[in-house]
Computed example of a mutant assay.
Amino acid sequence: MSNEKPCRACTDFRTWAKRQKEAYDSEKEAQKKQNQTLISNNGTRDNCPLDKDELGSKSWAFLHTMAAYYPDKPSEEQKADMNNFFHIFSKFYPCNICAKDLQEQLKYSPPETDSQEKLSQWLCKLHNEVNTKLGKPEFDCKLVNQRWRDGWLDGSCD
């Protein structure tokens, strides 16, 4: 059978209906296989809505990566946009407790947007403050570009 969509005007009804059923069954089987591959080792699906910890981890990864690729010499518009981004991000972050905490942190420590280095260091310090509140270990901010932009010096990211 070809991959072309069956043409009803070019095929008798019985053949057309059979091909439609085969295409439907094939699609259904493919969806079933895809769903099975989404089940992780612990029996839960991998494509479920994020919980607070997953959301936090993925959000930090995004923010650090964004900071890692921020310009070394941003324009005034880029500086303002990045500052606005963090304030808007804090208003719409899905975890209300986290959002309010970030809003408070931004009041006494606004984003440092003068360069990639300053933004990355500011974000690392902010992240470490959250880690401290959560009883998690702090990250060595001297390693921030290795972690989020360049890769580790030992070549393990190559």
Rank of each mutant, 00 (worst) to 15 (best):
S2N: 14
N3D: 04
K5E: 10
P6G: 02
R8Y: 13
A9V: 14
C10G: 07
C10Q: 12
T15Q: 06
W16K: 04
W16Y: 09
A17K: 10
K18W: 10
R19P: 01
Q20E: 08
S26T: 05
E27S: 10
K28I: 15
K28Y: 15
E29Y: 11
Q31F: 13
Q31D: 14
Q31T: 15
Q31K: 09
Q31I: 15
Q34R: 10
Q34T: 13
N35C: 15
N35I: 15
S40H: 12
N41E: 13
G43H: 02
R45L: 09
D46E: 09
N47T: 12
C48W: 07
D51M: 00
K52H: 11
L55M: 09
K58L: 08
K58D: 03
W60G: 01
A61L: 11
T65S: 10
P71C: 02
P71F: 00
D72M: 05
K73E: 15
K73G: 14
S75G: 04
E77G: 07
Q78E: 13
D81C: 03
M82L: 03
N83Y: 08
F86E: 02
F86L: 09
K91V: 11
F92W: 11
F92K: 02
P94M: 09
P94H: 04
C95W: 06
N96W: 09
L102M: 12
Q103K: 03
E104M: 12
K107Y: 07
Y108N: 04
S109R: 14
S109M: 02
P111K: 07
D114T: 04
S115R: 06
Q116K: 15
K118T: 06
K118D: 07
K118H: 00
L119T: 06
L119F: 08
Q121P: 00
Q121N: 11
W122R: 02
W122K: 05
L123K: 09
C124E: 04
K125W: 02
L126F: 14
L126Y: 13
N128E: 08
E129N: 11
E129L: 05
E129P: 03
V130D: 04
N131K: 00
N131Q: 12
N131S: 13
T132C: 05
G135H: 05
K136F: 15
K136T: 06
E138V: 02
C141E: 00
L143S: 11
Q146P: 08
Q146S: 13
R147F: 11
W148A: 05
W148S: 08
R149W: 07
D150R: 15
G151P: 03
W152M: 13
L153H: 13
C157R: 00
D158K: 01
